[in-house]
Write a protein that binds this DNA or RNA. Structure first.
Lengths: 350, 350
DNA sequence: GCTAGGCTGGCAATCGTTTGCCAGCAAGAT
DNA sequence: ATCTTGCTGGCAAACGATTGCCAGCCTAGC
């Protein structure tokens, strides 16, 4: 029941009959102590089940080997890929991942970031509710990587959903649609702005009339309004800001007995869990979210490892170390391509 | 770009013109120092943006104010409720939540637990892949709470899905079904065993023939086999181990042109995200997973707070403190009831 | 006027680990 | 035989916060 006291380095040293410093070196500085001594210490440490105290290490080195993933809502399926992607990459490098849910609140987010400083070496910030200035400010205190935001001086990973949306429009144009609605997302969304900017010229080029509606909250319940508005606009197809919204649209169309894709084609964005479960299965723009997570963690780790004082004379760099990422980290954000997944919610105009 | 050095208590003390010890007391021991002095220190601390070092605190106190949630697979929708529930409760008490993914491997899990010791004050273990003995062993080194497991001496939270399954069977019996399949889950699953034990007598009581098939891997792709086996068994309804399996069953039935619920009624378990998205919407046993998460965190926190040396003379206990939870913590696991959510995948026999 | 006691604030030890510096020792060079 | 050099291991000072102990001071009571 009661948790037993952990053996410390002192215990190990005593049991091995050496000084604490020797024990420390035996475990962390191969070659620095006599091989026999080292073996003895290692054996004793194993025997005692010794595990170095993370707090003590952190106190001395200032590094915690911990990275936070800061999200507005852990349960939004869109973020699962990020959780998994960053988590996998961090684990590979021996880092611990902590999850911070900011409950969609800028205030909570700011507070979280404040508290995190010192507890973690860095953070991946996704779908931040903060202003560019606030993020830049926080970045002065904590190594930060942003996802789907561009903050000058802060490394970032961007998902090129705009490119996927253009593919979606091309797909619809190919099916004969000439009047297409884009049900837009939050005005604060960087990617929403970027998509509109990409869709306009694409529509012109394809000879499609693009009607931008919204903004809609990117949740299922907003789908009803979006569906109604799209019908009213006389469109034969609707592209939504994200899949949740698309789910809501499908529900509403079903409730109004509008056949999909016969009466209306629907395209979502993100390809979250469930997109292939709805009927008809949703045609959607798939984003490599998990890869984005890995990449974000990559950028952060590159920066953290680069910060290590010991590495400073290592300017030559290891050719196997993907120097491109390290070099790009501080500069332009990484842009990851997306692609359209065609399922059953799109079809030719009746 | 470069992260600036954090102000320490020494900086605050120097700026306020007091000793470090005084500064410390001003911030943590209200009343211990002169009010004027305290105000000055607090003001300076705020001005400097001082944040106490978590590592230093942890080193001294042995407590990290951090709790881990250990899961076999972070991305399994079933666990989202746990993530959210434990997270919310932990945040309320000022704890940080760290997420550990064990990749469905007992080895990784054991290793994770080993590394976690010392980094966290405790852990919530869900769907552990470890044996009872291994868990009991780990519990000696780290305060543990298990979800859906019964380990003597280790507090736990159980979801009474068995009860919900009985409701499901009653629902089916009421619709006139007389031959029902239970598509079982992993043999190692505690809850699966418990469900079978509860379904047998319920079936006898209701005059329903119960056919247990499986075990099936609790994933969507296994649904095809399960659906085929259920059809072959001549059943008119199937209850599945979980919703993912049910999704697979629905898909297969659709592919084989078996109408649902006309040709086959389908009931899932867990009510994960997507259960109301599939067509027909899935009738399923809803588990209060988020509540289970809160409860698990509750038990863990109660135990952690109880361990605090300072609280030992507080045996009377605060009447507002929900002493029931604290008392129950070490004893029997908490059992949370579940209930059936009826949607469109169940109906009368044709 | 003197002492007892309360209030306030400082000193220093402590937590567990790492690491710069130094001392002892042995072996090889001169 | 002496000096140099390299290897090994110990001492002690950090890291930042907390806290037991103590000293100084002020006030109140006699």
């Amino acid at each position: 029941m009661a948790v037993r006291r952990q053996p410390t380095l002192r215990d190990v040293a005593a049991a091995a009959g050496v000084a604490v410093s020797t024990a420390s070196r035996a475990l962390t500085r191969p070659g620095r102590v006599n091989a026999d001594t080292a073996d003895r210490v290692v054996a004793v440490a194993k025997e005692l089940g010794y595990i170095p105290s993370a707090s003590a290490r952190a106190l001395l080195s200032g590094r915690t080997a911990t990275v936070a993933l800061v999200l507005p809502d852990v349960t939004n399926p869109f973020f699962f890929g990020l959780v998994r992607g960053t988590g996998a990459r961090l684990r590979e490098s021996g880092y611990v991942q902590v999850l911070a849910d900011t409950e969609e609140s800028a205030e909570v987010e700011l507070d979280t970031l404040r508290k995190l400083r010192g507890q973690v070496d860095g953070a991946v910030l996704a779908a931040s509710r903060l202003s560019d200035e606030q993020i830049a400010g926080a970045a002065a205190d904590l190594a930060l990587v942003v996802v789907n935001r561009t903050i000058p001086g802060t490394p970032g990973v961007l998902l090129d959903t705009a490119g996927g949306m253009v593919q979606a429009l091309e797909h619809l144009a190919g099916l004969g649609h000439t009047r297409v609605v884009y049900a837009s997302g939050p005005v604060t969304s960087w990617s929403d702005r970027r998509r509109r900017e990409a869709l306009e010229p694409a529509a012109a080029r394809l000879g499609v009339e693009l009607v931008v509606l919204g903004p809609y909250a990117p949740v299922r319940s907003s789908g009803a309004q979006a569906a109604d508005a799209a019908l009213e606009a006389g469109a034969t197809a609707v592209i939504t800001f994200n899949d949740l919204l698309a789910f809501g649209v499908l529900e509403r169309l079903d409730a109004r007995d509008v056949p999909v894709p016969g009466g209306m084609s629907v395209i979502g964005c993100d390809d979250i869990f469930g997109a292939d479960l709805v009927r008809p299965a949703l045609t959607t723009v798939e984003s490599p979210v998990e890869r984005a997570g890995r990449m974000a963690a990559d950028l952060l780790l590159a920066r953290l490892e680069g910060d290590r004082p010991g590495d400073e004379d290592d300017l030559g760099g290891d050719p196997d170390d993907e120097p491109a990422v390290v070099a790009r980290g501080a500069a332009d954000p990484v842009l990851l391509p997306t692609h359209l997944v065609v399922r059953s919610s799109t079809g030719p105009v009746d």
